[in-house]
Amino acid sequence: MALNIPKYTPPDFNQEIFINAPNATLVEVVKDGVSPANYHALSVFPEYFKINNKWVLATESRMDTVCVAYDEMGKESVNIVEFRNLKVGDKVVIGRTEDGSQGIYMYTQGFVNKSHDSDTFAFRSGRSRETAFSIDYDQLYEILKHEKAKNGYVTWVLGTAISLDEDTRNAMERLIREGYVNAILCGTSLAAFDLECGTFGTTWGQKVFRREQNTYENYYETINMVREAGSIESFVKSGQVKDGIMKACVECNVPFVLASTVRDRFTLPGTYDNVYEAQNAMRKHARKTSTIIMVSTILFTIATGNMTPSYNEFDGVIRPVYMYTVDIQEFAVNKLADRGTLTATSVVTNTQDFVKNIGRALA
């Protein structure tokens, strides 16, 4: 199937509702990290702000953020920032309505196919364990081919399960080497288990997995060896890692972000142990991604999905950011939508099988 990226159709700003709307109210920040009262909090939908009688689109609208406006005549623009990143002097848009009456307009029909009777913004449909996902796989294959050919930015958010199965791990490595991965966001465990397998040929200390016999000896030894080397990159370059996801990332210059959790027992060097620093590092990739695939990790999926714009501007064109959330639990894939990210396509399946299917089709 050929990929048909939905085209964005902006509102008709010649309508009276837009012409007669006032400019957005702007109030300056007087203390770093503290927004003026009645701030306008953004959503995942496209939003416009009227500045000097000009409607400006926020190209990186995302949840739990505020709009900082720049109102120099002829250079009107907006920047979407987190509350904690507000600085004294920033001009924040004030207002709680989204119908244009306060110079703020939330637009839900930018990507709607006009041939259908639909009033939803999203390009998704409902998913459940009874859904046949064949068409989703076919579309994703075409999306990834398109992103590779057009220099898109594909971010993968990966849970530990991806590094615990040999075939899945191999498939992910091939996808990295074939150019279908531009960044990986994950926790310490995925990287550590992957490096254990690449170094010792074991997972949880076993070459053949038996739940009752698992041990962390090789896992901890691997982390210790990486810490002695000083970094994952140095450990990989030492030649001790034979294969795997981290090795492919280092050799293919694919960036990865390791975010720690409060329960991490023994972390790899390079792991972000400050939540704001981790968030900033993850957001650098989320803000420029054109397709994001979140697999087998509920907390990372929710965190990354909420900080990822559902649409963005690429080479001057407004287009949707394709989002996929994949988990064997229906609860897990729906949790992202429950938290407000409405544009993700959910796939309820064994995540190891999912990655192997992608690998067989593309790599």
Rank of each mutant, 00 (worst) to 15 (best):
M1N: 12
L3M: 05
K7N: 14
P10R: 02
E16I: 12
I17W: 09
F18H: 00
N20I: 05
N20K: 15
N23Q: 06
L26D: 05
E28P: 13
G33Q: 07
V34F: 09
V34M: 12
N38I: 13
Y39F: 12
S43I: 11
Y48Q: 04
F49K: 06
K50M: 03
N53L: 10
N53V: 11
W55L: 02
W55P: 05
E60Y: 11
S61L: 04
M63V: 08
V66F: 11
V68N: 00
A69G: 04
A69L: 06
D71N: 14
E76F: 09
E76C: 06
S77C: 07
V78P: 05
V78T: 11
R84P: 03
K87V: 10
V88W: 09
G89V: 07
K91E: 02
V93K: 08
R96T: 14
R96Y: 10
T97D: 13
I104P: 03
Y107G: 01
Q109D: 04
Q109G: 01
G110D: 02
G110H: 02
G110S: 03
F111V: 02
D119C: 09
F123L: 11
F123S: 11
E130A: 12
T131S: 10
S134Y: 05
D136K: 08
D136I: 10
D138V: 09
D138Q: 12
L140Y: 01
L144N: 06
K145Q: 12
K145C: 02
K150I: 08
T155S: 08
G159F: 01
D165P: 03
E166Q: 12
N170V: 08
M172G: 04
I176M: 05
E178S: 15
G187P: 04
G187A: 00
A191P: 00
E196F: 02
E196P: 03
C197F: 15
C197N: 15
G198R: 09
G205D: 02
V208D: 14
Y216A: 13
N218C: 07
N218F: 06
M225I: 13
V226W: 02
E233M: 05
E233A: 09
G239F: 08
V241W: 00
M246H: 04
K247G: 04
V254A: 05
A259G: 09
S260L: 03
S260T: 01
S260H: 04
S260F: 00
S260P: 01
V262A: 13
P269I: 03
G270C: 01
G270F: 01
D273V: 08
D273H: 07
Y276K: 04
E277W: 01
A278K: 00
Q279N: 10
N280F: 10
A281H: 03
H285K: 06
H285V: 07
H285Q: 11
H285C: 07
A286D: 02
R287M: 15
K288E: 11
S290K: 13
T291K: 08
I293C: 00
T297M: 02
L299P: 00
L299Y: 06
F300N: 06
M307V: 01
V317T: 14
V317A: 08
Y324M: 00
V326R: 05
Q329I: 06
F331Q: 14
L336E: 08
R339T: 15
T341V: 15
T341S: 13
T343A: 11
S346G: 15
N350S: 07
T351R: 01
K356P: 06
K356V: 13
K356D: 03
R360V: 10
R360H: 11
